[in-house]
Design a protein around this nucleic acid. Structure first.
Lengths: 302, 302
DNA sequence: CATCTCGATAGCCGATGACTATCAACCGCG
DNA sequence: CGCGGTTGATAGTCATCGGCTATCGAGATG
């Protein structure tokens, strides 16, 4: 039994006429006759009663017809759906990102992506780099925005650097400016400040703590454990200062004092990770492209 | 897209392994690879991510899989159903019969047929010969039990004589026996009787009336218009006598007097009719066979 | 009776799917 | 670090099959 034979069969059943059915399916009449015969032979039953000028379905034909129609319809649907997938009219991207990135780079790009491909569902998983890497390897994510270096690097993952972000110190405009030199602040100056610190899992936490230790002191937390918004809120309220990406600080509005770090300062490298062994789906590749483009404009060069 | 390709595709999707899938579908691995490739080319999308030792479905594959399964299942169902039809495990026979035949020959044969082929639905249409012939020609019936000669014979119908039935006179045991000679009665004797007559449409009505006229008189109806059961009931109640097939009279029980007609008496020829241009369905042919057999035993020879 | 219609048949040809042999990449093992 | 083993891809060959044209044959038609 072949799809083509079913198609021929349905054409004959509909036209009740071999010659016209042959025209309808764009094939010579003998070919169609032959295929119908072959289908009948395989099924072990006549499908049509071939009374001259009065082709009619037999019981077997009557039984087969609805199934044949359904099979052909399903085959059409299959073709349709796969092609829509290819044209990014449908589909899904499962993107992981660290919380700080969700606040920074992501919203604009996701907005642009969704405007361009409204049929693609975007599933965002917010989590620490460690979790994201695991989910990627499990195949539960197509792409992840992570901060380099990865906590558990693996050859199974390919990373593509997107951009390097400066970190800055934010503080309440009402409190005295941090540091001693006004325009910028050194890491060591943070020893005199109390910090508002993210919860465990934020790469910014590890990064900041590591920087303080490298400068020879243990940071002093005024409060710790919040998400990005909470941290900014605490800072705004004057509980302490925080080290955040410049982009986040810029978005946070005017009611925060932003003080850059003295050179070389602190940075973090944001990268896009995906499994090395399988190419990400079309839609994920397209999102990857848009992210690369956006961050290229935003700034890997600098 | 071909059913075979879908089968191969599902096999690979299930085993996640080309070589094992090839074994499962009894084909060499390169053939399977090639078919999958060809399917992918036609659909314009990769169906599998071929990471060594980790074959996985792509989005497109994931989309196709459920449809492919369903298509294959439908194809199986189709094969199954058509074959059950051939083995008379399923199906239907649409049989027409005149009312008097429904009472006579039919019940036993239908019982035997149904016992033997419990999966076949039996649809009986009771009607006058004229209606039955029309329904046959329309294709609304597969077979019809009719009384010859047909009111509107047509080359489009083939008839096969089944048996000749004697007609007898039935009367109430409490009334005086009809006729004058005790053991049998002549048609002309019916002039002195009042008849219980079937409704229009019964061949027995036409036949009896024609016989009376041939004998030179117009029959006198005590009551007319009933079905077979009603007629027998009226006769039993003593309203009059009736001319019915011997087989019906025999079934009607002891509380009816049965008087044969003097030779040559009256007969009717029962035949099986079907369209000449198309062979009846398998199940109908089988019922035809059983009817022929049963009536052969019952009596065409005599 | 000639003609037309329409499905079946015959014969041929190119496409295609299956096979064997082999390659290439990757894995695990010593 | 090299070496078989595994596994999917590739190459080349061949038989099959589906498509085509030409033609037949049975009914309908005028």
């Amino acid at each position: 039994m072949q799809l083509q034979q079913l198609q021929y069969f349905v054409a004959v059943a509909e036209t009740r006429h071999f010659t016209r059915a042959a025209e309808q399916v764009h094939v010579a009449q003998p070919s169609l006759s032959q295929q119908i015969r072959s289908l009948e032979r395989e099924l072990g039953a006549e499908l049509f009663s071939r009374a001259r000028g009065n082709i009619a379905l037999t019981d077997a034909g009557e039984t087969l017809l609805p199934l044949a129609r359904r099979i052909l319809a399903d085959a059409d649907t299959a073709r349709q759906e796969v092609q829509e997938l290819g044209r990014l009219e449908r589909g899904r991207v499962r993107l992981g990102a660290t919380p700080s990135l969700c606040t920074g780079l992501l919203p604009d790009v996701l907005r642009a992506f969704h405007d361009r491909y409204p049929g693609i569902r975007l599933l965002i998983e917010e989590g620490g780099s460690h979790d994201l890497v695991r989910e990627l390897a499990r195949g539960a994510l197509d792409l992840a925005l992570v901060v380099l270096p990865l906590p558990s690097p693996s050859p199974a993952l390919t990373t593509l650097e997107l951009l390097r972000e400066d970190l800055v110190v934010v503080s309440s405009p009402e409190a005295p400016a941090p540091g001693t030199r006004g325009r910028s602040v050194r890491v060591s100056d943070l020893q005199r400040e109390r910090l508002v610190m993210f919860r465990h899992g934020y790469d910014l936490r590890e990064l900041t703590v590591a920087a303080c230790r490298a400068a020879g002191f243990e940071p002093d937390f005024a409060v710790e454990g919040g998400e990005m918004d909470a941290v900014l809120g605490f800072v705004r309220a004057g509980l302490g200062v925080a080290v955040v990406p410049r982009m986040v600080a810029a978005r946070a509005g005017r009611d925060l004092r932003v003080t850059p770090l003295t050179r070389p300062g602190l940075h973090r490298t944001i990268a896009l990770a995906h499994r090395s062994d399988v190419a990400p789906p079309r839609a994920a590749r397209e999102l990857q492209r848009m992210l690369t483009e956006a961050s290229g404009a935003a700034g890997l060069p600098r």
